[in-house]
Design a protein around this nucleic acid. Structure first.
Lengths: 146, 146
DNA sequence: TTAGATGCAAATAGTTTGCATTTGT
DNA sequence: ACAAATGCAAACTATTTGCATCTAA
């Protein structure tokens, strides 16, 4: 598992001046057990299963906080209203979304370090993460398409 | 303007077997005049201003269709429930989102052609577009942050 | 001790649906 | 001519809010 260790996000939460509350720890744990992709609806279900005393609003507040901290990022896998949250392990995430079947294919190497540094210098910004999504047809849909 | 000419998307709509209806042409036009970023709510307003006889549902159906055709892509600029749609000119789009003030900084060159070809070969997929988002602090927020 | 975070339930906002009618080809 | 697309309004779903209470530091 090259996943960010649980502790490192807790660390960052604390360093940013946020309390390590029961709700936050639980939501973080569920997110990290999600395999990288989870919708808010699924998250609500799983958090509720883990601890029914945690309220819906807190889960949404966590999603918002964790997004601002760049732990996760909302995206739209299947083109419906509900976003899917992807775990930004190591600050980044990359995948291919099949526009025919919505299958998600993850890949690791993005070779964006150089571009990151170049943008930081040229635009005078500090970059902490990125999300790269490709769209197209997966192997299966490509052959079905003929 | 290195924007996709209006005609080329119409072409692709037709080629994919869709009718060139008044609602679709209007929504497309509003999207192309949006400067690249627009929320569904803003889109609804502008389409309604352009032609009040176009119904809400049709606008959402257009958003869905255009996303499947990779003309646009939903993303989350400001971390709230409403997605922002970005125009995928030339099939791709790249920007930096400031996590402090939500400012969006666009940039052109992503140097992802090589990676695209590599992924297509290695994973046996056909890629038609991509979205690359960086997150961090813009020049302004970086200095405010000190 | 106390600022920050929570749970609740109600309010809001955004999106989708079913269906009769219209329209592009 | 007719399959595809539309507009409508109602239904549905997801998200946010205000506030009294609780809790991590």
């Amino acid at each position: 598992m090259s996943e960010d260790p649980f502790g490192s996000r807790l660390e960052r939460l604390r360093e940013a001046g946020h309390k390590l509350t029961h709700a936050r720890l639980t939501v973080l744990q569920v997110l990290e057990q999600s395999g990288g992709h989870i919708t808010s609806t699924e998250l609500l279900e799983r958090v509720n299963a883990a601890d029914p005393s945690i309220g819906r609003a807190s889960v949404f507040r966590c999603l918002d906080l964790f997004t601002r901290l760049c732990f996760i990022r909302p995206t739209h896998i299947d083109n419906n209203a509900t976003p899917t949250y992807v775990l930004m392990s190591g600050g980044h995430h990359h995948h291919i979304i099949c526009t025919a079947c919505n299958r998600v294919i993850e890949f690791e190497d993005c070779h964006l370090d150089e571009l990151t540094r170049e943008l930081e210098q040229r635009l005078n910004v500090t970059l902490t993460g990125h999300l790269l999504e490709f769209y197209g047809l997966c192997a299966h849909c490509r052959s079905a398409d003929q």
